[in-house]
């Protein structure tokens, strides 16, 4: 089993093509696959559909792929922090499919678990429900949502062993496990690759079966909203 690659470029070799569907982990700028995004920018593939909760900010994260106009469509729940996104959306260059955040997460999880569709009450009676099958269960109305089966998943973890067993740190876990699960191939970037056997098997967040290629690298980990409180004087 050889999953470790020397660089993001090497790890994505042979996996990228125009018009593909990529699922990306991260919430805001927290836990995003920075290095793999940079490598996709460099590759020049276009027409991408990206399933990701957000679309980065201007000039960072998935925002970089907007600047180079490589994204044709986003499947997201919130895209409010990005002026270039708004510009491309309002000029019709970029398509957006808004998904309620929990529906997006469950669509990824379902895809990874081999479930093509599920019923949820989220969005009933709203724009989100338009054109979707409605079905009543025990007197309550639900809508049908589809599982996401991505061509490629790009995710970021804190540590992984050489077999891809991965551990995330704090709220940087977010969409990374469901995004990892729903890809035909999953490439993961980590802060540290540790020897197999050094992670507690009881404390693995994402089993290595979901992870096909791993790279280690330095992450900028930019903070979007730095909020602090004052120390009280002793």
């Amino acid at each position: 089993m050889k999953k470790i690659y020397a660089s993001a470029d090497a790890a994505l070799d042979g996996l990228l093509h125009d018009d593909m569907l990529i699922a990306a982990g991260g919430f805001g700028l927290c836990g995003i696959p920075e290095l793999l995004i940079d490598a996709i920018v460099k590759s020049g593939v276009t027409g991408l559909t990206i399933a990701s909760n957000n679309c980065g900010v201007d000039g960072f994260g998935l925002g970089k792929l907007l600047d180079t106009k490589q994204i044709a469509k986003m499947m997201s729940s919130y895209v409010g922090e990005n002026d270039e996104f708004m510009r491309q959306y309002l000029s019709g260059e970029l398509e957006i499919e808004f998904n309620p955040q929990g529906t997006l997460a469950e669509r990824m999880r379902a895809g990874g678990a081999g479930i093509p569709g599920f019923y949820t009450k989220t969005g009933v009676g709203t724009q989100v429900a338009e054109g979707k099958e409605h079905k009543d269960f025990d007197g309550e109305t639900y809508i049908l949502e589809r599982g996401i089966f991505a061509d490629l998943s790009i995710v970021k973890a804190w540590k992984a062993d050489e077999t891809g067993n991965a551990v995330f740190r704090k709220t940087a876990r977010n969409f990374n496990p469901p995004a990892a699960m729903c890809g035909r191939v999953c490439v993961m970037e980590v802060e540290e690759i540790v020897p197999t056997g050094s992670l507690d098997p009881d404390l693995i967040h994402l089993p290595g079966i979901y992870v096909h290629r791993i790279i280690q690298g330095e992450h900028e980990k930019r903070i979007e909203q730095r909020t602090v409180r004052k120390r009280e004087e002793a």
Binding site: S77, Y78, M86, P100, Q101, G102, T103, V128
Partner: peptide
Amino acid sequence: VKGMGGAMDLVAG
């Protein structure tokens, strides 16, 4: 046009 985030899930659940 920013998106609903988790609001639709919260009010439904």
